[in-house]
Design a protein around this nucleic acid. Structure first.
Lengths: 248, 248
DNA sequence: ACCTGAACACCGTTCAAGT
DNA sequence: ACCTGAACACCGTTCAAGT
């Protein structure tokens, strides 16, 4: 279920990054194409969520028979992979000249990534289990490039990249999963209150009602970047607290 | 799909934390019970993953008809919620006396949480989308209690708790999703190499082959705790780097 | 090269009964 | 109070055919 897609597996050979072509069918709209299939899958996912994506429904929207899809596509997992990656394109940091600051670039890309997944709430929970498409790989490459510019050593690069990935994915998956219904959250908090002797702290802080996901995201990200980026001259404070020793 | 379960919804009223009872059926093994259903669901999930859990298969393993389950349980989502929470019990930090250090307590609980989810690889990706059971709420309460002991202000409590939740969930979901097959990861890295001109940095660091998930987890967690815990007297370094200003 | 319908082996859940 | 089988409205995918 993880990083699949070793090469072109479908009957038709496929360019590496077949995402959304600008405007696939020039005339009416009848002919099926990979581009149309993927774009319609995204629409369907946006409308009805992950459980709403069905080969039959997808074919219906496209005005074709179900089995026609299978000439363009291997199976449903294939559709998911393509829909996912098509939604994660990144146009790069706003300023491309010199004097780019690594931290700004990283923060911009990660916030943009998060925003894209929030626009397509099904995407976040899908991403960790699916193949890594070119757009996601591009974002990871950009991350590595920025961190390298920041002076992160090769040996620590993967840890740094995965820490940031973990944080972004965790934040976004939680956000999109929790946010589906505010009533449910209210009900949860109410239930919490009923057992307030059991959960006094989180009941008092009204944990389940907290709304500032964006703020929490940026703040935690800042802490992570503080720790990951060696560019920041931070004095050794190893004697100041009970934390475990930290290397360099 | 989020924090459901406002109260007892099934036909039979249910104690609040009906998890795994020690040994539900004293004699043979025939009588159905909520405890047996949940325990068997966990077995099934461990054996065949999330897609392997089916009401029919579950009934088969229990030696009953499918519809018999529905007297004890509302629906399949109910089964998932109960299985999930039953797997996330926490026995508390090793040392319960005085002189407990908040950071050790937090780290212990989070590592234990992660370990529990790694033992049941289906659980991590299920958790964000499901109702929060008593065991998960207990862990969050303990987190809040420890952070409060550390001096985290009430106003910043939720941000701190959610940051840690996000990090743990992101790390564990990624780990369990990626780890399903090493061949796939190898194939992914190979594919990366084929396009090395496109992804030079992460190809060089061999990102998709990196194995030290545990190390990455602890390291990132340390950074987060460095930032979250105000107990640590950290000098103001706001002029030392390009980072955005940080409050307090 | 591209599309199709019939068929297979599954799903979760409702309903009306049984004991 | 507890369990059941038949039936409904769905799934993804194989296969053998059509153009």
């Amino acid at each position: 279920m993880a990083a699949k897609r070793s090469g072109a597996r479908s009957k038709r050979s496929r360019p590496i990054d077949a995402g959304l072509q600008p405007a696939p069918p020039p005339h009416s709209e009848t002919p099926l194409s990979l581009g149309r299939i993927v774009a319609t899958a995204v629409e369907l996912l946006d409308d009805r969520g992950v459980d709403g994506l069905t080969m039959r429904r997808l074919a219906d929207r496209l005005g074709s028979g179900v089995m026609s899809l299978y000439w363009h596509v291997d199976n449903k997992a294939d559709v998911c992979d393509l829909a996912l990656d098509s939604v994660l394109e990144y146009r790069g940091p706003p300023q491309v000249g010199e004097s780019r600051d690594w931290r700004g670039d990283v923060a911009h890309m990660l916030e943009d990534w998060r925003a894209a997944m929030l626009r397509h709430p099904w995407s976040a929970s899908l991403l960790p289990g699916r193949a890594l498409g070119p757009n996601i790989l591009g974002r990871l490459e950009l991350l590595g490039e920025s961190l390298s510019r920041a002076g992160v050593a090769d040996a620590e690069m993967n840890v740094a990249i995965w820490s940031l990935w973990n944080y972004v994915m965790g934040a976004t998956i939680t956000r999109t999963s929790f946010d589906l219904s505010d009533d449910d959250r209210a009900a949860g908090q109410q239930r919490l209150s009923r057992f307030s002797e059991r959960y006094p702290t989180i009941e008092r802080s009204r944990l389940l009602l907290d709304d500032d996901w964006g703020g929490a995201f940026t703040k935690g990200l800042d802490f992570l970047l503080d720790g990951l980026g060696p560019g920041r001259a931070r004095p050794d404070v190893s004697a100041a607290g009970p934390g475990r020793p930290r290397s360099a």
